[in-house]
Amino acid sequence: MDSGAIRRRLAMGAAVLAGSLGLALAVPGTAFASADGSCAGREVRTLPFSTGTVHVFKHDGYVCAVTVARNPGVKRVMSVSVQARGNRPVVDKGSYKHHAGPVTVHAGQRCVWVKGVVGRGSVSSGWILC
């Protein structure tokens, strides 16, 4: 590879990295995902509904939520969202067998609004953890 191609690749990599960093700083309610569907911290709320439950956790100013199906095993539409007051909601939505999420936002001392859906059932918390 010639030096021009190396410089172009390095410049492209630096641009992508800078753009990612800028987006992360501009959007304080960014989501963090975990492969095992767990959240850090202690469970502060459980929001049961007809087809599932939303588990809400808090740790060091971060709020995390997971929607778990009441009867896992069949793929269906599931979602979980957490919105810190003054920010946009962070959402995980798709067809899952067991759970949607986790999604995490930095709420600090602000209230959060948590929603969960499994199939036709849903729950919406209203502003909590104020």
Rank of each mutant, 00 (worst) to 15 (best):
D2T: 14
D2Y: 03
S3E: 14
S3W: 11
S3P: 01
I6R: 07
R7S: 14
R7K: 15
R9S: 15
M12V: 15
M12A: 15
G13Q: 14
A14Q: 15
V16S: 11
A18L: 15
A18I: 13
G19E: 11
S20K: 01
L21V: 13
L21I: 12
L21W: 04
G22C: 04
A24G: 10
L25S: 02
L25E: 04
L25Y: 06
A26S: 13
A26H: 09
V27K: 02
P28S: 08
G29Y: 03
G29N: 14
A31C: 10
A33Q: 06
A33Y: 13
S34N: 13
S34G: 12
A35G: 06
G37S: 01
G37F: 03
S38C: 00
S38R: 10
C39W: 03
A40F: 04
G41V: 06
V44K: 05
R45E: 11
F49H: 03
F49C: 08
S50G: 12
T53F: 00
V54M: 02
V54R: 01
H55K: 13
H55V: 06
H55N: 10
V56F: 04
H59P: 00
H59K: 12
G61Y: 05
V63A: 04
C64G: 09
A65K: 00
A65Y: 01
T67L: 07
T67M: 07
V68Y: 03
A69Q: 08
R70A: 15
R70K: 14
R70F: 04
P72K: 01
G73V: 06
V74Q: 12
K75M: 11
V77L: 14
M78Y: 05
V80K: 01
V80Q: 02
S81M: 10
V82F: 04
Q83V: 07
A84M: 08
R85I: 11
R85S: 14
R85Y: 12
G86K: 06
G86N: 03
P89R: 03
P89W: 07
V90L: 07
V90R: 01
V90D: 11
V91W: 01
D92L: 07
D92K: 11
D92Y: 03
D92A: 11
G94W: 01
S95E: 14
K97L: 09
K97N: 11
H99N: 08
H99K: 05
A100P: 02
A100D: 08
P102T: 09
P102R: 04
P102A: 04
T104V: 14
T104Q: 12
T104A: 07
V105F: 03
V105P: 02
V105I: 06
H106C: 00
A107S: 09
A107R: 00
G108K: 00
G108W: 05
Q109F: 06
Q109L: 07
Q109S: 13
W113E: 15
W113I: 13
V114N: 05
V114W: 02
V118I: 10
S122N: 13
S122A: 15
V123R: 01
S124I: 06
S124G: 14
G126L: 08
W127S: 08
W127D: 09
C130W: 05
C130E: 03
